[in-house]
Structures are given as C-alpha cells and as structure tokens.
C-alpha cells in the first residue's frame, strides 16, 4: 500500500492570480522554508502530481484550463486553494471577468487564507492536505479491495 503522505508531488498552477501567492509558493521551495524536507517535489506535469496548488480566482478564460488540469491528475488527488482569491475571489469578486474562487469549477479540499499567503500557512495547508490525501487513498483502497473480493467470489 503506497503511503502518499511520505512524498507527495505538488503541481502549482496560477489562474488569474496577482503573482503574490505564486511567489510565496515558490518561496516555500527555496531554502528558507523548504518544503522539500517533507519529501515534496515540484513537478510540472499534472499526470505526475498528487496535490494541486491553485492560486487566483477563476475567470471565463481559464475555467476550461483548470478543469482540464484537474481531470488529468490521477486519483487520489487533493486540491489546495492558496490565497484569498482562490478561496472566494478576494477583492476582485465584483469584477466582470471573475466567476469566483476555485470551488466554482473544481472541488477544493483545503483553503489557505492570506493575501499573500505566507509560506508557513502554505506548509500548514499542505500538511492538512496530506491528511485528506491519506483518507482518500485509504477509501479508494478499501473500495478496490471490496471490488476484487466481489470478483473472486
């Protein structure tokens, strides 16, 4: 049984963010905060990723992009909305091009508040996401075991 929480692979995508939260996500990878000591690897390919870190709100242009990335990620997967814009639209929620936070398009598992979200908050959010990932992995493993038992009998 693979333990995902020992080395989750993270993918970061910016959907209409001001770059503040993206820079803080990158800063989490740099020596001062260093999420790599938890085994986290930053990958560019959604098919390699377990956790999706999304910043910025959803607008009409990037809605389909975000949904496609989400669908390309293999199960079990966790979505972490980093920053207030990703949680609820932030100061831009009245703009004509913004639909809202990330949860208008894809299901979000952890919300990380902050404008720009501090690297420490992102680490906290990641740790919570790992718990959710473990639960999902255990649930899907139980499901597949049940199926294979049903097939055998």
């Amino acid at each position: 049984m693979p333990k995902f929480s020992k080395s989750p692979w993270v993918m970061h995508y910016d959907g209409s963010s001001c770059n503040g939260c993206d820079i803080e996500v990158l800063a989490s990878l740099t020596p001062l905060y260093d999420i790599e000591r938890f085994g986290v690897v930053n990958t560019g390919d959604p098919r390699h990723a377990d956790i999706l870190l999304i910043t910025g709100g959803i607008n009409y242009h990037n809605e389909s992009v975000v949904r496609q990335i989400f669908e390309q990620m293999p199960e079990p997967k966790v979505v972490v909305a980093v920053g207030i814009c990703a949680c609820s639209g932030g100061v831009f929620r009245d703009c004509y091009n913004i639909k809202g936070g990330v949860d208008t398009t894809i299901p979000v598992d952890v919300y990380v508040p902050g404008c720009a979200a501090r690297p420490e908050s992102i680490i906290d959010g990641l740790v919570q996401a790992l718990d959710v990932l473990e639960k999902k992995s255990a649930a899907s493993a139980a499901l597949s075991e049940g199926e294979s038992n049903a097939q055998q009998s």
Partner: peptide, 8 residues
Amino acid sequence: YSAPDIEK
C-alpha cells in the same frame, strides 16, 4: 494569520 481549513 488565520489557519488553513477544510471548509470556509
């Protein structure tokens, strides 16, 4: 800061 959470 406010802590991250699984719901709003």
